[in-house]
Design a protein around this nucleic acid. Sequence first.
DNA 1: CCAGGTCCTTGAGTTGGATCAAGGAAGGGC
DNA 2: GCCCTTCCTTGATCCAACTCAAGGACCTGG
Lengths: 228, 228
Amino acid sequence: MAFYGNQAEVRTEAKLRVQDAPRECHVGVCRAYGKRHAIFRQGDKAGHLYRVESGAVALEILLEDGRRQLVEILLAGDLFGFAVDGSFEETAIALEATVVCVMRQCDLERTDAVGWEVAHQTGRQITRAHDQLMALGRKNAQERICQLLLRFARDIGDRPCAEPGGGPEPIRLHVPLTRGEMGDYLGLSLETVCRTMSALKQLGVIAIGPRQGDVTILALDEVRRRAG
Amino acid sequence: MAFYGNQAEVRTEAKLRVQDAPRECHVGVCRAYGKRHAIFRQGDKAGHLYRVESGAVALEILLEDGRRQLVEILLAGDLFGFAVDGSFEETAIALEATVVCVMRQCDLERTDAVGWEVAHQTGRQITRAHDQLMALGRKNAQERICQLLLRFARDIGDRPCAEPGGGPEPIRLHVPLTRGEMGDYLGLSLETVCRTMSALKQLGVIAIGPRQGDVTILALDEVRRRAG
DNA sequence: CCAGGTCCTTGAGTTGGATCAAGGAAGGGC
DNA sequence: GCCCTTCCTTGATCCAACTCAAGGACCTGG
């Protein structure tokens, strides 16, 4: 049972967040996970559904030869844990201290109308996967990175539509991914991610730092334009 | 209403197929579409759900500069038409003469338990999207093409697991995509698709023709191995 | 059976991003 | 504060796939 293996050692750093996390958890139980710890692994038996309460989760697929691909990034409110033949095809990893609500699928299926809630969620995720496929298939490094930055910007300052003049107020955001993980999500090498971030900084479109993971969008319109 | 625009002129070529298509269509209506005709378009108002009864459908996204990406290929039984903010973000195109069952979402939501049927379908599609993301992000041309061939092979001779000796019986299949469309699905140029198919032919792994779209898998194990 | 369009194939040259390599800045533990 | 690990950054070189180009095969309608 590698399933619950990471919990104990995590309690401390996750404690502060557990307190403000538990919203209505219909038929589930909240669990806390520490940075980089697995929630389930490729090949594990499925049967539960998961919702991110706080933090961020990545789904990744590994090939035997070690190549790795992040296929989805999940933020608060997102459901995950969909499996096809009874076992997971991805590994779910907490990108930072994260609280997850775990629900048994059989319990959910007893509750009516939850099916549609799930269906809508999955529909949204399919759309996101399609956006990402467009990015990986046809967009260059700069476009992919701008699209990713917008992904995180959307969750913070959720302004519906920037003023045409180009919002002068910078947007500060925290990206819970290392350069390597950004590369794994975007189908790029970590060096290319670095170089492209540096280029965007040089252009005055974004600012980096002061801490790792911090990014400030200085010209939202520019980021939007470059994301395509 | 570009929505129903392609139907009339399609009737003839689709007629033969309409007859054997209509399985149980709970609350929907079957419609026939001709090769390369749109079922709905990027930006169209959503509100219906669709199921492929026979034939094949592709979902594509277009960028303003003309870059195109097929983001999903749907075969008989697959649901599509999930939209987020009330309008479609993809265009759905019939890859060959195709019959689709169209259902109004509001009708479906009245029927209990359909939600879960939909959720399971979408879960399967998410998994497929994730496989495809792995392909576009980290696999080379040969691996992507072998993965695509397996996709179509699975729907024909659905043998659960080939004999360890490497099934000597060749698998004949029809790929309802032009080289260009294969490229658009796999994030490759059509020339690369050609070259890679030729290379696989040279290696004796597949045979091509006699008609366009026909592919015969001569060494299933080799295709599997190369798909990664 | 022929004409014209669409699709496929192969060659030659180019390039965006990968890989290899080396150092520098954060950050966590003692 | 210092050490050690992890992460970030930049440079140099290389290569898989792209682009441009030119034929050839297939397919449909007349």
